[in-house]
């Protein structure tokens, strides 16, 4: 099997400005944050981002990387609304396709199945078609003649996902509560990149969890990145939960330009190792503050 191991920066070097990039996970859960941080360090811009959004979307918006956003929501879960997303929407800094959550799945599934659209009832009667004039209806060719929303395929240039384990060939495994839509993001993409907590020999995958936990197939994957704590500060259960203290710090900083500049200087001005070191120092400080 081909060894597909890469670094975050090598993944980002394969991406181009203007690309459509799908990001796996859900809200502030199991997001490929080390890959997102690598994009922040790059000169990529004008991206179209497709996501069940969380801080991945927030950070990319704050760094001015996003031209267009396709989403069902952008949330930090324990904080209902992503602050950078709110700011970007209220300042008109980004154009959006706000879809029903289920439409996003259907668009990814259509792309992964090489269909141009899939019919869906969800969205009909709401203002989703009104604010997304590119959406069209389709009539059943059968006797019922029912009209559906024709959810267009979300064809991605690249997908970024973070799972718990993977082998060097790109077989990837989730060990937490939900696989989310990571396999569909990979299937919908021209090139999919998997980051994971730990790269293990193939033989260890089924020792760690049931065969059903092998969510992503290597035939869908172009690169594998070992990224311990790579989903920080989102959840990556059972390896770790969400860093709520850090997320609060992030959200507070995001509300104020000066605080955000300080946050960026402290956490996002260096490479991934510098980020992880700054996070470790933040955790130590928080502990001391509690004492």
């Amino acid at each position: 099997m081909t060894d597909k191991r890469m670094t975050e920066d090598e993944v980002v070097a394969e991406l181009r400005p203007g690309m459509t990039i799908g990001i796996g996970g859900w809200g502030s859960r199991r997001k490929p944050m080390s890959l997102v941080r690598a994009i922040l360090r790059s000169d990529l811009r004008d991206l179209t981002i497709v996501s069940y959004g969380g801080p991945d979307v927030g950070l990319l918006l704050a760094a001015g990387k996003v031209k267009h956003l396709v989403y069902g929501f952008v949330s930090l879960d324990s904080i209902p609304l992503e602050p950078h997303f709110r700011a970007a929407r209220e300042s008109g800094a980004v154009t959006v396709s706000e879809w029903d959550e289920g439409m996003l799945q259907w668009g990814l599934y259509a792309a992964a199945s090489r269909l141009s659209f899939l019919p869906l009832r969800s969205g009909l009667g709401s203002d989703v078609p009104a604010v997304n004039p590119d959406l069209k209806l389709v009539t059943s060719p059968y006797a019922d003649g029912t009209e559906y929303l024709a959810v267009p395929a979300l064809n991605l240039d690249a997908a970024l996902v973070h799972l718990n384990r993977a082998d060097a060939a790109g077989n990837a495994q989730y060990l937490g509560p939900d696989g989310y839509f990571d396999d569909l993001f990979c299937g919908a993409a021209e090139r999919a990149y998997v980051s994971c907590e730990r790269i293990v020999p193939t033989t260890e995958l089924t020792a760690a969890g049931p065969v059903q936990s092998l969510l992503v197939r290597r035939s869908d994957v172009r690169g594998v990145v070992e990224a311990p704590n790579g989903a920080h500060f989102t959840t990556c259960e059972p390896d770790y939960g969400r860093d709520e203290a850090f997320q609060r710090e992030y959200a507070q900083a995001a509300a104020d330009p000066e605080a955000w500049a300080a946050f960026t200087a402290r956490f996002l001005s260096g490479d991934e190792a510098a980020y992880q070191a700054a996070v470790a120092q933040f955790a130590t400080q928080s502990l001391e503050a509690v004492r």
Binding site: G72, V74, S75, E101, G102, S122, V128
Partner: peptide, 9 residues
């Protein structure tokens, strides 16, 4: 606000 989330469906 939150976005339409799952409300249309």
């Amino acid at each position: 606000l939150l976005g339409v989330r799952g409300a249309p469906g």
